[in-house]
Every structure is written in structure tokens, then in C-alpha cells.
Design a protein around this nucleic acid. Structure first.
Lengths: 329, 329
DNA sequence: CTGAAAGCGCTAACAG
DNA sequence: CTGTTAGCGCTTTCAG
């Protein structure tokens, strides 16, 4: 009898002179166990230092208590903050998180999702980007619930800010500073549905039927924003509302590096309320809301779905306000 | 016969008129299968759209092809970059990543590790912080390999830069700019072993036996750095080498916000080469190396351990250089 | 090269 | 309140 054998529920059962079923019951906190037996079992568990094998449990119960989190890129500070919120509440509810970055590559993403599905995650939260029809199909085939956070789309479960009204407020603060020609800088290639909302808000704000020529495209990267600044200047814009902090930071720095005074000659506003907005000089005026909460709330919603709790609202809007930095007047 | 039953290896076996064992062999790319049979099986797999249940596989094989990644805080840009490197190579080798943030809370961390262990992850990478003896013990009991990345300690497998020589170079670039009194700003509370190295390097660089009074404590947060600046000024330092970008950024901004000219009156240097170093004005001079690679290399090392490949070096040092920003002369 | 059969460690009726 | 008994879906000897 080798000592290093892994202790199973069966060993505990023997030690406590009960059946495996009873051990299983106390391990899972089922109520129908006599107090005296429970104690005996608990003692046996401690004596043997029993640790449950959760993969066996998963196989038998068809639940893994792990969820998949798909972000475009975990090294982007916005997504990282959001992921942290997800992680913390996952942990509170005893879920583990499998994290993957999709890089906005749809083919890649489908592969990743299938991989997670084969590991039988119980559900998903998709961060910051929509879900393709293909992925939605496989998700529904496996009957796995999923939440969209920080993005738009016609899915059932979503948590986000009200982009349209946020954009209107952003526009208002820009023009109230005396600016005339404001650009909307967004990424409609990788974040299509989100962009559509921003554009819709922008239209409503400007009162124009078409905002063509006023909507500029960026990748959500510092460098990309930096490069875009030139076009902003050439096109005689004097303000920009940017839908991502990294890009906004690039724009801001490029502007000041070229000697353009912010906010005197050009105002810039951003959207994510990350640390970056505090770091730049001038600091960035931003839509303000807790990115962390966005994640936390979406994960909480998912736990409700997984535990068949009532969910009052399948679409949750997070409140926001405008936080003044020195990049606007 | 309901159509929605999940397709198992058994169904495939029937369809292909072979045994489960054979299906298992082709699924796992074993060589000992006749080409003709293999084809029949593959066709059956495609016809039925069979997807393996990886948790069943894990239970039977005692391997999960998932690894645990423990970071202090995924919302810290440095760790997020590192995690991305880990994630990418994990994916290349068909591993999934379970990510947890420990918040430098040792008790919490042990709980998290035990949780991952119960899910039978195959190995760990610990990012940016040491592993307590308690955790090491449980790890060895389960015989799970682990890598330390971005931190020091006496563990077997490590990947990091050479902190001592890095600190010396940092010190040299600071004094070569004409500074006399340079501070080492680090976090020895949460990153003890790492700090010891920095301090050791600092001692060697200054040639002093004691560097007391020159070593200041920060948390690795922007706010914390911001607050610390006052002490730096009061103590008449005119330069600082900071071991974390967020903290360094805080110091830099606090300095300039108080009207102190950087680098004329005060030089600051940082360590992580993250985006933050480019964003600040002046930009930060930093130790330069690929944080992403740090993660990627450590994960690659782990795969070697898991696949029983030869590992030439159990301790890997990543090359680095000094990247001049405008925060030093 | 292929099949039979015994698990992996746990859950979940079902019976008592 | 407790025990018995099938599985969950796959791997892995061991024969042949």
C-alpha cells in the first residue's frame, strides 16, 4: 500500500465507515446528512487531507465551474481592467477563468472558442467585441450562455454604457469649449456594432444626416493614434472624440509634439477612463465609469444565468459621467 | 433516438465499424493505425461532427493541458503584457490558461493555487513574485512543475533579466547625467527577493556598503508613486531609479506638476519598458527588454517541462539594454 | 494493426 | 438519512 496514492472519495468513505455517496453529500454541502455522520466524514477528510478531483466531478456532473473569457487583447489596459473585474467576481462564486485573446481575428477566435467548449466551460463572457454568427451557432448548439460586455449587438445578454447618449454628451462638451469642427475617431473595422452606435450618437449630436468625412478610422493602439494626428490637422479639425484611450493618447501626444496647443487649439476627449487619462499631460477628459465594474457586473450576470437565478434585466446599462481633464476647455 | 445526444467516441466507433480504442488512436495521432482505417475513422468524425470531451480525456489521462498563471494583478500593464506572451505560446502548444490575480495576498494566493490544483492544471507560471514555502510544498506534493518569471528566488526554473547588472547600468546612466544623489525606489514588501537584487545591484553600483536612506518604498501604483515624490524632494534627491513603470510615472508627473524640471533638476529612470514610458512627457528612460518575450519564453520552458523535453537552461536571462527617453540627460 | 475491458474519481438516481 | 449501482467519455494495458 503505497502512501503516495491520491486520496479519493472512496478512501474517505472507508475511513469514515460510510459510503461514497455520503462523502459526496458532505463535500457538496447537501443537507440530508445526519450531523454525527457529517462530523465523522469531515474528520476523515481532514485526517487524510482529501482534495476533491474537480475534473472527475466535472465529468460526472457535466459542469466545470469554469468560464471562458474572450478579450481582443489582454495587454490593452482597458480590457485588462475589465478582465480583472470579471476575475474577481468569478472567484467569489468559485468559478475559474480561462482567458484568451482573439486579436480581432474571427477565424482564430472561433478556434479558441471551440477549444474552450471542448474543455466544457460553463459559459462565456465576450469582452469588447461582437460575436460572429458562426460562433453564436456553436454556442447555442452546446447551450452555453454568454454575455457581451463593452460592446453592442443584438444578443440577449449585454452590459455596457449607453453609447449614444455618451457620444452626445462628449460632443456637447467639445463644442461648449468653442470648437467648431469635431472628429469622431473610432475603429469600425474591428468593432463594427460599437462604432455604429458611436456614429449614431454623433449624428444625433451634430444634427447632421451624414457625418461622412467627420468619422476617422484608427486601430486601438497608441502608434495608430499617433499617426492619425496628421490627418486630423490636415483636415482642419479642432477637436476629436476618440473611442479608445490608447489611440487618444497617441493623438494627444502627436499633437503636442507638433507644437499644437491642447486644449487651446485642439481639444481631445476619450472614452475608457483608464489610468492613461491621468498620465498624459494635459490629462484627458473622458467618459467616466468603472471599467472594473463593467467586468464585475457582467460576470455576476453570468453566474445568475448559470445558477438559474432570476435575472431582472438581461441588458444592463452602466451609468457614466464626463470627467474633465485638461485636454478640453 | 434523440438527435441532440452528444456524439462520443463510441458513436464514431460504430459509424466507422471499429473499436473505441482505434478511434482514440486516430484522434490522438498515434501511428499504429492502418491508413485505410484511419481514413474511415476521420470520415466518421467529420460526418458526425464529433468533438472530443476534453474533461473525460483529462480524467482518463491525468493530464488537462491547462496551466495556471498567477499574476499579482492583471490590470497592471506590465503583468498584462507578460500574460499575453504566456497566453500566445500556450495557445501554440494547445494549452489553455487559467488566470488568477493574487493581489500580493499570500493567503489568498494559496487558496487560488489549491483551487487550480483541484482542477488539475498541469503546471504553473508565477509572474512577478516569489512563491511561498507553503505553496511550494503543495506544488511538490502534486508534482506540478512551475516557472518563476520576472522575479527572483531560489527556485529551479526561472526567467528574468539580470537585475543586478541592470541596476548598475541604470545607476551609471543616472550619474553620467551629472546627478549626485540617486534614490532606488522599489517595493520590497511585496516583491522581497526582487528588491534584494535591486538593492544588491545598487550597492555594487554606488560602491557603498550601506545604501540605507537611499532606498525608498513604493507600491506599484501610479498614485503611490505620485505621493512619494514629495519625500524624494524633501530628501534632496536629484535622481531616482524606479523598479516599476506605474510608480515611476506617478513620480514623474508629481515632479513636473510641482514645477520641478525633468531631467534638468531631477532625472528618473524606470524598469518595465511598457507603453507608459512612451506616453509620459518627458518620456521615460527605461531598462528595455521585451516583456512579452519574458512571458513567451517562460511558457515555452514550461511546455518543455511538461513534455519531458530536454531543457538546456533552467534559469534563463533575457538580454536588455537602456532605452533613452527624455527623463534623463 | 485492432479489440476487449478495466479503470480515472465523482455524481445521481433509486431503493430502502 | 444512507448505501448500491450505473454511468460521465475517454485512455490504456493486455491479448490476439
Amino acid at each position: 500500500m503505497d502512501k503516495d496514492r491520491t486520496i479519493t472519495i472512496y478512501d474517505v468513505a472507508q475511513e469514515a465507515r460510510v459510503s461514497m455517496a455520503t462523502v459526496s453529500r458532505v463535500v457538496n454541502n447537501k443537507t440530508n446528512v445526519k450531523e454525527k455522520t457529517r462530523i465523522r466524514v469531515v474528520e476523515a477528510i481532514e485526517k487524510l487531507n482529501y482534495q476533491p478531483n474537480l475534473v472527475a466531478k466535472s465529468l460526472a456532473s457535466k459542469k466545470t465551474t469554469t468560464i471562458g473569457v474572450v478579450v481582443p487583447d489582454i495587454s490593452n489596459i482597458f480590457f485588462a481592467n475589465l478582465a480583472r473585474g470579471i476575475e474577481d467576481v468569478a472567484e467569489m462564486y468559485d468559478y475559474q477563468v480561462m482567458l484568451v485573446s482573439s486579436d480581432n481575428d474571427l477565424v482564430q477566435e472561433e478556434k479558441l472558442v471551440v477549444g474552450l467548449l471542448n474543455k466544457r466551460v460553463d459559459g462565456f463572457v465576450f469582452v469588447g467585441h461582437e460575436v460572429t454568427p458562426e460562433i453564436k451557432e456553436v454556442l447555442s448548439k452546446y447551450e452555453k450562455p454568454f454575455i457581451l460586455v463593452g460592446s453592442e449587438g443584438d444578443e440577449e445578454y449585454k452590459v455596457n454604457i449607453d453609447i449614444i447618449s455618451a457620444t452626445r454628451k462628449a460632443y456637447d462638451t467639445l463644442v461648449s469649449g468653442g470648437k467648431k469642427k469635431v472628429a469622431l475617431v473610432t475603429n469600425s473595422i474591428n468593432y463594427k456594432k460599437n462604432s455604429e452606435r458611436y456614429i449614431e450618437g454623433f449624428q444625433k449630436a451634430t444634427g447632421a444626416k451624414s457625418v461622412e468625412g467627420q468619422v476617422l478610422e484608427v486601430k486601438y493602439k497608441y502608434e495608430d493614434g499617433y499617426k492619425l494626428a496628421e490627418r486630423l490637422i490636415d483636415s482642419k479639425f479642432d477637436a476629436a472624440f476618440v473611442t479608445n484611450d490608447e489611440a487618444a493618447t497617441g493623438i494627444l501626444n502627436a499633437l503636442t509634439d507638433r507644437g499644437i496647443k491642447v486644449p487651446e487649439d485642439f481639444e481631445v476627449m476619450t472614452s475608457n477612463n483608464t489610468l492613461l487619462t491621468e498620465i498624459t499631460r494635459p490629462s484627458l477628459t473622458t467618459l467616466a465609469y468603472s471599467v472594473y465594474d463593467l467586468g464585475a457586473i457582467s460576470m455576476r450576470l453570468l453566474t445568475k444565468l448559470l445558477n438559474a437565478e432570476d435575472v431582472m434585466d438581461s441588458v444592463i446599462e452602466i451609468p457614466f459621467h464626463i470627467k474633465k481633464g485638461t485636454s478640453t476647455k
